[in-house]
Write a protein that binds this DNA or RNA. Structure first.
Lengths: 189, 189
DNA sequence: CCTATTTTGGGACATTTGGCCCTTTTTGCG
DNA sequence: CGCAAAAAGGGCCAAATGTCCCAAAATAGG
C-alpha cells in the first residue's frame, strides 16, 4: 500500500524497525490533487514532506513572470523543499502538481515526533537531505562543465519522463538555455 | 581558541550543551597545510570534517585536465564533501588548500560517537547539510536564470574573497563561462 | 466535436560567447 | 635579485545563442 511505498522510499537501503514503520504509516495522509494545483506557494512555511505515489510535479521559483524550475518529481519520489520544511521558514518557490497526482503527506509535527522517538528516523531524514545535496552538486557540475547539448542528452538518458511530460520552455530553462536553443538541439536529428 | 570557533560555527544559532562542547573540543585536531596541498583526492573516502580556521580552499572535480570548482571556502567556514564523508563512499572530487591554512579536523569515527551520545549534535550535522543544500539551490537558480554578468556582480558582492584569491580561469568556470567571457565582463568598466 | 488558447518549431538577424593566439604582467623559486 | 613559468587581457574570427516573429500543431474547455 502507498504508505509503505513512502516508507520504503525514505528507508532506501537502510533497514528500519517495524515499530517505526508502523508508527510512520499511521501518520501518513493521502491527498489527491488535480493538474495545475499548487501545493506550496512562495512565502508559505511548508508543513509537509510528500511522497508522489502517482503523478508528476515540479518545484520552481518565479522570476519576472517566468517559472524557473528547480526540480521535477516523478512517481515514487519524495518531495520536500528542504529549507522551508526543515527550518520552518517561508519558501522561496512553489510546488506545482503537473498532472493529476496522488500524494502521501506527513506533517512537520509528526516528523518531529518520529525523530524524537526513533533516532533511526532522524537518520533517514539526514540521508534524504544528503541525497538531495548530492544531486544538486551533480547538477551544478553539469551546468558549469558540459554543453547544453550534452545536458539535454543526459536529461534524456537519466530522466526521460521530464522531457515527455513538460513543455519545451520549462525544459530549456531547467537546462539553462533559451527555448530557441533547445529547439535547435532537438532539430539536430 | 580555534576548537571553539569550529564548534560555534557548527552550532550557528543553536545553543548546544557545554558537555557536548567539551567533548567535541577534545576530539578536534589541528593541522597546518601549505599552499597547493591536496587534502582529499577523488576516489578516497573522506575521513574528516574540517574547519578552515585560517586560509582559503577549494573543492573541484577534474575533467579533461581542467578543474571544475564546486565550492570555495574562506576563513571560518566548515568544509565537508557531503557524500563522501557522510556515506563513507569514494569522493568524486578533490579538496585543495589554496593558501597556507590552519585546519581543525574531526574524524568520521568521532563524529559518529558524538552523534550517538548527543542527539543535539546530530541536529547540528543535519543543519549543516541543509544549509549546503540551500546554497546549492541558490547557485542552480543563478546558473539557470541570470546572466553571466549578473552572476559575476553577485559573486563580487557576496563572496569578494573568491575573486581576490582565485585565478580568472577558476572564477570563470565557477560562473559557468569561458575565461574570455569573464575577461570581457571585467573589461566593461 | 468545435473553437479559443497555448505551445511548438523554425526563419532572419543581432549579439554574445568561445577558441586560438600573442604580448604583457604577475608569480614562484632558486 | 633575476629568470622561468604561469596567468591575464585582448584581437580576430567562427560558432553559438538569443530575440522577435509567424505559421502550424497541439491542447483545453465548453
Amino acid at each position: 500500500m502507498e504508505n509503505e511505498r513512502f516508507f520504503n522510499s525514505l528507508a532506501g537501503t537502510n533497514k528500519p524497525s517495524n515499530e517505526l514503520k508502523t508508527q510512520f504509516c499511521k501518520m501518513v495522509e493521502k491527498e489527491i490533487r488535480p493538474k495545475n494545483h499548487t501545493i506550496l506557494k512562495a512565502g508559505q512555511i511548508c508543513d509537509n514532506i510528500w511522497f508522489l505515489a502517482q503523478g508528476f510535479a515540479m518545484a520552481y521559483i518565479e522570476k519576472e513572470d517566468r517559472k524557473i524550475p528547480y526540480c521535477f518529481w516523478n512517481e515514487n519520489e519524495v518531495m520536500v523543499p528542504v529549507n522551508s520544511f526543515f527550518k520552518q521558514v517561508p519558501a522561496d518557490g512553489f510546488i506545482e502538481i503537473m498532472e493529476k497526482s496522488t500524494l502521501m503527506a506527513i506533517s512537520y509535527r509528526n516528523m518531529k515526533q518520529l525523530s524524537a522517538n526513533f533516532p533511526e528516523f532522524n537518520l533517514l531524514m539526514c540521508h534524504l537531505v544528503e541525497d538531495m545535496q548530492y544531486a544538486s552538486e551533480k547538477r551544478i557540475f553539469n551546468l558549469t562543465s558540459i554543453s547544453a547539448e550534452e545536458r539535454y542528452a543526459l536529461l534524456l538518458k537519466e530522466a526521460p519522463f521530464i522531457v515527455r511530460k513538460t513543455s519545451v520552455e520549462l525544459i530549456a530553462t531547467y537546462l539553462g538555455v533559451s527555448r530557441k536553443t533547445l529547439n535547435r538541439i532537438r532539430a539536430k536529428k
